[in-house]
């Protein structure tokens, strides 16, 4: 990367899309992100259908929806489950390059395995403790927003 590109890169903020139907979990995650010291613009949608509309910029309110650099996905949601959403976006040539990290309370081996087979770029268990959530979010941010290169999805 040239210095100029690096500057542009650091000026553009990281964008994350959170797909989460539980208002409490969404709030805690946002709070943990702020406290863990990494900055990302977080948009929140409530289920898989809404997430698909957001990503495909479908519908009046979504025309200017930014392309996220990372998607954090709950599994257990009404209407369209997290696994179904994951399968759909990994089949979509325009969207499949966006990494999706599953954030779930399910410890089931079948959920873990299915998520990776469908293309998840990580499977995180929701911790019960807020301090653990902060340290989890810090590691997540250091991996995705400090260490790795992400595609420019604009």
């Amino acid at each position: 990367m040239s210095e100029e590109e690096a500057m542009v890169d650091s000026q553009r903020s990281n964008r994350m899309l959170m797909v989460e139907d539980e208002a409490g979990d969404a709030r805690l995650l946002q709070l943990a992100m702020r406290q863990s010291g990494f900055s990302a613009d977080i948009d929140h949608v409530w289920d898989g259908y809404e997430a698909l509309d957001y990503l495909r910029r479908a519908g009046q309110q979504r025309q200017r929806a930014p392309r996220p650099d990372l998607i954090v996905l709950d599994l257990k949601m009404p209407r369209l489950s997290g696994l179904d959403f994951l399968a759909l976006i990994k089949q979509d040539g325009d969207l499949r390059a966006i990494p999706v990290v599953v954030f779930s309370s399910s410890l089931l081996e079948t959920d873990v395995r299915s998520a990776y087979e469908l293309g998840a770029a990580g499977y995180l268990i929701k911790p019960a403790d807020f301090q653990e959530l902060i340290s989890m979010v810090r590691i997540l941010g250091e991996y995705w927003f400090t260490l790795v290169r992400l595609p420019h999805n604009d």
Partner: peptide, 28 residues
């Protein structure tokens, strides 16, 4: 396919980054 693959590369080219994720990389 369920095994996560992280790419380690000297290439900075956006084309390579995009291709890697498109093919299913779990990090570049």
């Amino acid at each position: 396919r369920g095994i996560p693959v992280v790419v380690l590369s000297t290439s900075d080219a956006e084309r390579d980054v995009r291709s890697a994720y498109h093919l299913g990389a779990a990090g570049y």
